Simulated scan of single mutants.
Amino acid sequence: MSESAKFRNLRKGRGAASNPDGRFESLRREREDDGWGSVSEETVLATVVGVDRARRVITYNDSPDIPFDRSINPYRGCEHGCIYCFARPSHGYLGLSAGQDFESRLFYKPDAPERLREELAHPRYRCQPIALGINTDGWQPAERRLALTRRLLEVLAACRHPVSIVTKSALIERDLDLLTDLARDDLVHVFVSLTTLDRELARCMEPRAAQPERRLAVIETLARAGVPVGVMVAPVIPVLTDPELESILQRARAAGAQEAGYAVLRLPHEVKNLFREWLASHRPLAAQHVMSRVRELNGGKDYEAAFGVRLVGSGPYARFLRDRFRLAYRRLGFPGLPVLATDRFRPPATSGQMSLF
């Protein structure tokens, strides 16, 4: 019997029910109740934030199925605790768990703005849109105190560098001044991630993210301020949330979303077991049906990592979701977002460099 089956260690405000060892660890730990109270009954798990000393902050990729070639992730780990998060396995590279460690043991780069200036000032740097906060949310709760993402935005705004953002946090409204400044020069897109309109489902599936109605309010706030905003229906979870696809698109469009996209549930590495545990705890009657549909999307497997398939799935069910999305998109009249400008970029001055004027 697995650790999680014996001890469903449900923590208040946390998505994962367990904290399994990372896939790179040589040893595996199992909790045993010896009858002497050694198994903790604590229900609250505090967040600990450590420092990540990285020499570079821009990460480059050549993935053919995503629309950007560079990104910045101010944080490693994410307090939102979304049980389905595809970034959870990245904590294994730190010797930590993709489970509760991912939600409670965070790392940030305090000198990230300085490193960003250095990289943008490099003579060989060529401006293309930067995706901000893609693996983990740049506006998660820790950002309220650390303001790291805001400082990165300040650098991008000063350099007139285009940026694309995805978030499910209402905290982004704090930075409306920077976003509107960038929007005036076609330098920003914001996508609000919206998985479900069901408040109770969101509460247990995305415990520390903004509630669905609050995210719709963020779309409305950004749209009224003139910030180009879209909605990402991601992930679409078979059985649990896919019936809401059209409703989410309709509500987002009514709130002012100009663009929309979707991605299906991804369960790489440790995420598949964590998600199964979550289903057993929160949606046991639907668990078998959900996973059957997941495998249908992935050629009979829990996850297919191939480019072109991992985000949208394959087979009849994937085509059904694609057709539903396209029909709703056309019916609702999403106008699309303006193209991000790259010709306004001004490299930051390096130390010792004198201005021409």
Results as ranks from 00 to 15, higher is better:
residue 246 E to M: 08
residue 266 R to K: 14
residue 24 F to I: 13
residue 30 E to P: 11
residue 124 R to V: 15
residue 125 Y to K: 10
residue 121 A to M: 09
residue 159 C to G: 04
residue 224 R to D: 12
residue 238 P to I: 02
residue 105 R to D: 05
residue 14 R to N: 10
residue 102 F to C: 03
residue 45 L to Q: 15
residue 35 G to H: 13
residue 340 L to Q: 05
residue 250 Q to E: 15
residue 236 V to Q: 00
residue 162 P to A: 01
residue 175 D to S: 10
residue 281 S to G: 08
residue 98 A to H: 04
residue 155 V to L: 05
residue 280 A to H: 05
residue 345 F to P: 04
residue 178 L to Y: 04
residue 90 S to V: 14
residue 129 P to A: 04
residue 108 Y to R: 09
residue 166 V to E: 00
residue 232 M to P: 02
residue 40 S to Y: 06
residue 77 G to S: 06
residue 299 G to D: 00
residue 270 E to M: 07
residue 144 R to G: 14
residue 195 T to M: 01
residue 168 K to S: 02
residue 81 G to E: 11
residue 211 Q to F: 10
residue 50 G to W: 08
residue 210 A to Y: 10
residue 78 C to T: 02
residue 166 V to D: 00
residue 142 A to F: 04
residue 1 M to L: 10
residue 349 A to K: 05
residue 26 S to H: 13
residue 342 T to Q: 03
residue 167 T to W: 07
residue 140 Q to V: 07
residue 139 W to L: 08
residue 259 E to H: 04
residue 210 A to W: 09
residue 104 S to D: 05
residue 320 F to T: 15
residue 67 P to Y: 04
residue 199 R to H: 14
residue 333 G to D: 07
residue 292 S to W: 00
residue 250 Q to S: 15
residue 267 L to C: 02
residue 157 A to C: 05
residue 209 A to K: 01
residue 46 A to L: 11
residue 287 A to W: 01
residue 189 H to D: 00
residue 207 P to H: 07
residue 188 V to I: 04
residue 111 D to V: 13
residue 213 E to R: 14
residue 165 I to R: 03
residue 249 L to N: 00
residue 217 A to P: 04
residue 120 L to Q: 05
residue 275 F to L: 03
residue 249 L to V: 02
residue 19 N to H: 08
residue 16 A to L: 09
residue 297 L to H: 00
residue 7 F to Q: 12
residue 346 R to A: 09
residue 140 Q to F: 03
residue 303 Y to E: 01
residue 156 L to D: 01
residue 264 V to H: 00
residue 311 L to M: 11
residue 316 P to D: 09
residue 107 F to L: 14
residue 198 D to P: 06
residue 94 L to Q: 12
residue 335 P to C: 10
residue 29 R to F: 15
residue 123 P to M: 10
residue 49 V to K: 12
residue 73 N to F: 02
residue 206 E to D: 13
residue 260 A to C: 07
residue 339 V to N: 03
residue 4 S to R: 12
residue 347 P to G: 06
residue 153 L to K: 01
residue 233 V to S: 01
residue 302 D to C: 04
residue 143 E to T: 01
residue 292 S to C: 04
residue 318 A to Q: 05
residue 46 A to V: 08
residue 69 D to Q: 13
residue 26 S to M: 13
residue 232 M to A: 14
residue 23 R to V: 15
residue 134 I to M: 07
residue 179 L to A: 04
residue 248 I to T: 04
residue 51 V to C: 10
residue 97 S to E: 15
residue 96 L to Q: 14
residue 267 L to T: 00
residue 41 E to I: 14
residue 235 P to A: 01
residue 325 F to W: 08
residue 256 G to S: 11
residue 219 I to C: 01
residue 13 G to C: 11
residue 212 P to M: 07
residue 20 P to M: 10
residue 118 E to G: 10
residue 196 T to H: 02
residue 161 H to R: 01
residue 74 P to R: 03
residue 79 E to R: 04
residue 122 H to P: 07
residue 189 H to Q: 02
